[in-house]
Design a protein around this nucleic acid. Sequence first.
DNA 1: GTGGATGGATTGTGGAACAATTCTCGGATC
DNA 2: GATCCGAGAATTGTTCCACAATCCATCCAC
Lengths: 208, 208
Amino acid sequence: MSARTTAVDALTRELRERVLDGTLPPGTPLREQRLATEHGLARHTVRAALRALAAEGLARVEPHRGVRVAGLGRADLEALGELRVALEVEGARLALARHGGRLPAAVHAAARDLARACRAADGFAPVTEAHEALHHALVAASGSPRIAAAHAGLAGELRLFLTQLRPAYDLEELATQHGELLRALERDGADVLRAHVADSTRRLAALL
Amino acid sequence: MSARTTAVDALTRELRERVLDGTLPPGTPLREQRLATEHGLARHTVRAALRALAAEGLARVEPHRGVRVAGLGRADLEALGELRVALEVEGARLALARHGGRLPAAVHAAARDLARACRAADGFAPVTEAHEALHHALVAASGSPRIAAAHAGLAGELRLFLTQLRPAYDLEELATQHGELLRALERDGADVLRAHVADSTRRLAALL
DNA sequence: GTGGATGGATTGTGGAACAATTCTCGGATC
DNA sequence: GATCCGAGAATTGTTCCACAATCCATCCAC
């Protein structure tokens, strides 16, 4: 029951939600005074929340000019994809090394969850969530907290792209494709992930 | 000439310096009121600077308990090393791919600078600086801004370890070792970096 | 000793104000 | 008409002060 959360955390969470669900489109200016009065908070609190949001890559702050919801371009998407490749490939490599060339049960479970979400087909959000969870489970299985943390920090940005682009995914294909991905990882090693992530980045870039 | 910088930036910079040169040893509590009066600033300003420092990994903030200079343990060092490997290996891979299997002139120049700094032997700082610059030049040559940015964000933390450990490096060896590293990269590909970084991490860990 | 009360220190937040900077827009100039 | 310019508005950066919430150390009762 305890509202075990600070005011700036609460505001950060709400703003993050609104950015990610598209209520606040990219480029929208986030004025301190306006947000403060709207939420019944002090400007300092709003400021802190805005900086936190910027640290997640969901907003950009220009000194003396305010902060606005982060916009996205093809270059940003590609750069983000390259960073994801770096983290996921090395994460997968460590995960495989730690578990004798196999992937741990948590990863396979995440793949099953994704398949289930694809079949259920009740909305887009559960699928992207399960997809994100699978990729993160893979990285988390590396046992490397910093790689996992860096990867988790990218989740928001990635979702920002997804909510903007609403890609036309074939859900059936998405499920089987990831099942095959896990098999290929255990058979051929971590590098097969490179093509997988690069391909999904390419698909998104095509929508820009 | 313009002091084209905000107060919080200035304080962040000063605190960063003091943390990195060892004036503020790990574990030192950074009290808001104390820093505010000492520097003639408002507590809010100090708070912002402390959050910025924490975002760089140089301080840790515990809610309602304040922030203190980041301490380091073996686990932290190893986790940092794994993240560096992820970024540097993929960065090097992209750099080689972009330049037809070679490394661009900027990287070779950085290696020469390192060799020069090692021979000059006037202090430790120039060597670690040149060493950092070489590794970053390698990653920057990837042309991937996000990978480069993530790598740059690790520089502070890495230096925090170095200033604490003062490893006994054979400077002659350091220079030749990195010259050989570049040759090996161009000959055998990016993966040779893994052993290089892992080895240097191991050396540091041995001092803990 | 163990298990609280209690008070001091520190962080979290609010409110108002002012300086510094950027933005806006109506004129003056060409 | 287009461009430059300056005054005022809007917004951010910062200070000061206050108070609630939380944590911490110490002392007391048992």
